[in-house]
């Protein structure tokens, strides 16, 4: 097995949850978006976050990707702190170096794809593996071809992102994230910028990923049928707190909380 595939962060916490939010607070100015949030995600688990607009779903994923920093509390990944690092027996704020090492395990797919327009599809997919992980160029190219095969875009390997439809761009973005061999994949409303007829193709790819890998997924989606099919657990958020959680059949079929019911009623109509 190539060295970069070795599971990272397998330390004292291995065997426990892969992701742990421990009293996480996030404020923007005096707007408290997350207020002492606690939850865990097990290795291989696929968790869907639902909830009304502004309830903090995107913020949770962005904190995990280190695109935002916590105001208080600690985020743990694979038994290691991500937001912090140990120093002299205490946890202090993580520096860039520490975050780079821990977030190696995490990949993200964005709502607006965010492909690099100055690169071909192939370069988009190989740039991270080659330069962040040190994968040899030839191996990265082979892997890119395989991944493009999987997302059904093998013929677009030398195309530029601007020559692709939104759905194709998003499938490339998924391939790009997978090329980094993440243990954790974050998906934030990855189909909501797409024309309706392009949604199915992207969701099919994600179903394949869910069925054929043991990648842990955190997803935010309005595609309730998809969420039901692929997730092990659903977390219902409101105002930065978990209102209710459970297996998808229960949350979608027999929600206990009034707020969950109201929310589902609103989106399903």
């Amino acid at each position: 097995m190539p060295q970069y595939e070795t599971p990272l962060g397998a330390g004292p916490g291995a065997g426990g949850p892969l992701i742990r939010f421990d009293g996480v607070v996030k404020r923007f100015g005096d707007n408290t978006v997350l207020d002492h949030l606690d939850f865990t995600v097990a290795p291989g688990e696929r968790v869907t976050l639902i909830g009304p607009s502004g309830s903090g779903k995107t913020t949770i994923l962005r904190l995990l990707m280190t695109l935002e920093q916590v105001t208080d509390g600690v985020i743990w990944v694979g038994g290691e702190p991500l937001s912090h690092m140990p120093k002299g027996g205490r946890l202090v704020r993580a520096n860039e170096r520490h975050q780079r090492r821990v977030r190696r395990q995490i990949g993200m797919v964005f709502q607006q794809f965010n492909l690099f327009p100055n690169m071909t599809v192939r370069q988009n997919i190989t740039e991270g593996p080659v330069h962040s992980l040190g994968v040899p160029r030839g191996e990265a190219d082979r892997r890119a071809a395989e991944l493009l095969e999987m997302v059904d875009l093998a013929d677009k390997i030398d195309a530029h992102p601007t020559q692709l439809s939104g759905g194709q761009q998003q499938r490339v973005a998924i391939a790009r994230a997978l090329a980094m061999r993440p243990r954790i994949l974050l998906l934030d409303e990855v189909t909501s910028a797409l024309d309706p007829e392009l949604v199915t193709g992207v969701l099919d790819v994600l179903r394949t990923v869910a069925e054929t890998t043991d990648i842990t997924m955190l997803l935010v989606t309005h595609e309730m049928q998809f969420a039901r099919d692929v997730s092990h657990r659903v977390l219902m958020f409101d105002q930065g707190r978990i209102v209710e959680e459970g297996p998808p059949e229960q949350i979608f079929g027999d929600p206990r909380e009034e707020r969950t019911r109201a929310f589902l009623h609103a989106v399903l109509d």
Binding site: M65, T66, L67, R100, R103, R104, I106, G107, M108, F110, Q112, N114, L115, F116, P117, N118, M119, E127, G128, H131, S132, L133, R176, A177, M180
Partner: peptide
């Protein structure tokens, strides 16, 4: 900003981000 965020999600170093994404654009 979204381009920078994509480089963070690919765990690129500052120099790699600058060299491969920021300067070409």
């Amino acid at each position: 900003r979204a381009q920078i965020e994509a480089t963070i999600a690919l765990n690129m170093s500052w120099w790699r981000r600058t060299r491969s994404v920021v300067l070409p654009q």
